Computed example of a mutant assay.
Amino acid sequence: MSPTIQSLVVPVSDLDAAKAIYTALLGAPHTDTAYYVGFNVNGFEVGLNPGGTVQDGPVTFADVDDLDAVRESLIAAGATDREEPRKVAPEVRVCVLNDADGNAIGLRGK
């Protein structure tokens, strides 16, 4: 299966301020916690992450079937780890790599 791009996670320094702005734009969030606020935009996930590094900017996540295999293939091609794989939900892990120019590549899978 080919990877699909279905989410964008925006690091924020003030979750309440960001939530107010994104709610005005996108409507009520489907998930509203102290560590993540998520909005569904026609099947595309826009998330606010108060734990992210604002200076690094938003991260687009590609959904993949085998996170470890895709991550290893990207590292073999020259990508480097920014954030090692971690579990964010019962069946979901994420990681972030950098391309050769330091741009973020997010992976979301099992």
Rank of each mutant, 00 (worst) to 15 (best):
12 V>S: 04
89 A>C: 08
84 E>G: 07
85 P>D: 04
86 R>Y: 14
45 E>C: 10
54 V>P: 04
78 G>R: 04
57 G>C: 08
77 A>G: 08
70 V>L: 04
100 A>M: 07
14 D>N: 14
88 V>A: 09
84 E>R: 14
84 E>D: 12
104 A>S: 15
34 A>V: 12
75 I>T: 03
15 L>V: 08
105 I>D: 00
13 S>R: 11
74 L>S: 01
40 N>L: 12
89 A>D: 13
49 N>A: 08
69 A>D: 06
34 A>R: 12
44 F>W: 07
82 R>P: 00
94 V>C: 02
57 G>T: 05
105 I>N: 00
25 L>F: 12
82 R>H: 13
68 D>G: 07
108 R>Y: 02
6 Q>E: 15
49 N>F: 07
56 D>C: 05
58 P>E: 02
106 G>A: 03
5 I>G: 02
52 G>E: 03
110 K>H: 13
59 V>C: 11
103 N>D: 04
57 G>F: 06
96 V>H: 00
90 P>T: 08
43 G>I: 11
93 R>Y: 12
88 V>Q: 06
32 D>M: 08
52 G>V: 07
64 V>E: 01
84 E>V: 14
59 V>H: 00
3 P>S: 06
69 A>T: 12
89 A>R: 12
86 R>G: 09
73 S>G: 04
74 L>W: 02
15 L>W: 07
79 A>H: 08
6 Q>W: 08
110 K>N: 14
81 D>N: 12
101 D>N: 12
71 R>Y: 01
59 V>W: 00
90 P>H: 09
10 V>I: 15
34 A>Q: 13
91 E>L: 14
2 S>W: 10
91 E>M: 14
65 D>P: 06
27 G>T: 10
64 V>L: 03
44 F>C: 09
98 N>E: 09
69 A>F: 03
43 G>V: 11
56 D>T: 10
106 G>L: 01
30 H>I: 14
83 E>M: 14
105 I>M: 01
95 C>P: 04
85 P>E: 03
32 D>W: 08
